[in-house]
């Protein structure tokens, strides 16, 4: 159950965490230990036991009715963002991906 420093680096990147080389080695070791500890569960015989999808075994089917209610503090909620422009949230430019790149191009061409 070893987690290599490369895997730690990859997972850290997915989570947008910046780790030092020391931290990568440290977490690689700690994560390996944790996984090894949990792996003990693999020794259990679970033949014929239904998989558990959710830990809340007795609670299910919690719903709300389809009713519209506007949030009363709409202005505050939008203004909580660090940057806005004309009611839109402004964020650092993202690499256009998927439909956005093409539609942006179409708008320019059209």
């Amino acid at each position: 159950m070893a987690v290599s420093p490369e895997e730690v680096r990859h997972v850290a990147w997915l989570a947008r965490l910046r780790l030092t080389a020391h931290e990568e080695r440290l977490f690689s070791e700690q994560l390996s230990n944790i996984l090894a500890h949990v792996a003990k569960l693999q020794e259990l015989d679970v033949e014929g036991i239904e998989p558990t999808f959710h830990v809340l075994k007795t609670l299910s089917n919690v719903y709300r009715p389809d009713e519209v209610r506007s949030w009363p503090e709409l202005r505050e909620v939008v203004q909580a963002a660090p940057q806005q422009r004309d009611g839109l949230f402004a964020v650092p430019r993202v690499l256009p991906e998927g439909e956005d790149e093409v539609s942006a191009k179409n708008e320019k061409d059209g």
């Binding site: 919690v62 719903y63 709300r64 009715p65 389809d66 506007s70 949030w71 709409l74 909620v77 939008v78 909580a80 004309d86 009611g87 839109l88 949230f89």
Partner: peptide, 23 residues
């Protein structure tokens, strides 16, 4: 108009909880 149908839940504010619309 943009961002007039939003609330802390769909904006992902910490501490909020989603509840499924039965419809």
């Amino acid at each position: 108009p943009p961002n007039t149908q939003v609330c802390p839940i769909c904006l992902g504010h910490p501490g909020t909880l989603p509840v499924l619309n039965l419809k």
